[in-house]
């Protein structure tokens, strides 16, 4: 509890409000990202790269600020950090093991015919819908 008491003295209410204000600034930046990106893109730095950075880069910073300062991970015993990192590693293991079969639609000895057909059908439907300005049409098609 002594650890907690020291911590409470260091982190007054004003400190938490300051962290919240930083989080709000980051939120605004992440919303502005895709709007501003096309105007600031130059050379190899394309608009989508800027959007990815403002979207996920900022999300990681926001998550860190909340975990460290609101959940007090910065003063919590290391046991908890190890526990959380282990779970994140399990998530990455799941991704690494499954993603190749989902992100690719054909390999050396296999082909996901259904996925390929769906992509072709949907892209074609979207092209037709855009030409006629009927954005909802492909969703209706998909629903039937």
């Amino acid at each position: 509890m002594a650890e907690h008491q020291d911590h409470a003295d260091d982190h007054g209410q004003a400190f938490y409000v300051k962290i919240w204000a930083i989080l709000l600034v980051l939120l605004i930046l992440s919303i502005l990202g895709p709007i501003v990106a096309p105007h600031v893109a130059f050379g190899f730095l394309e608009a989508w790269m800027i959007t990815m950075m403002t979207a996920f880069g900022i999300a990681v910073v926001k998550a860190y600020l909340v975990a460290a300062n609101f959940m007090h991970l910065n003063v919590e015993k290391k046991y908890i950090t190890y526990l959380l990192v282990t779970m994140l590693m399990l998530m990455l293991l799941f991704f690494a093991g499954t993603a190749p079969d989902v992100m690719e639609h054909k390999g050396q000895n296999w082909e996901n015919v259904a996925a390929e057909a769906e992509i072709e059908r949907a892209l074609e439907a979207q092209g037709t819908a855009d030409a006629h300005g009927e954005h909802a049409r492909e969703h209706e098609d998909a629903a039937h």
């Binding site: 526990l83 959380l84 282990t86 779970m87 994140l88 399990l90 998530m91 990455l92 799941f94 991704f95 499954t98 993603a99 989902v102 992100m103 690719e104 639609h105 996925a115 769906e118 992509i119 949907a122 892209l123 979207q126």
Partner: peptide, 24 residues
């Protein structure tokens, strides 16, 4: 929370791989 990370993490990881594999 550790188990929730695996639940939400698995769901979001599945979403990301599908999103990247499906241009439509």
């Amino acid at each position: 929370i550790g188990s929730e990370i695996v639940i939400f993490g698995g769901l979001l990881a599945s979403y990301i791989m599908h999103r990247l594999g499906h241009p439509e």
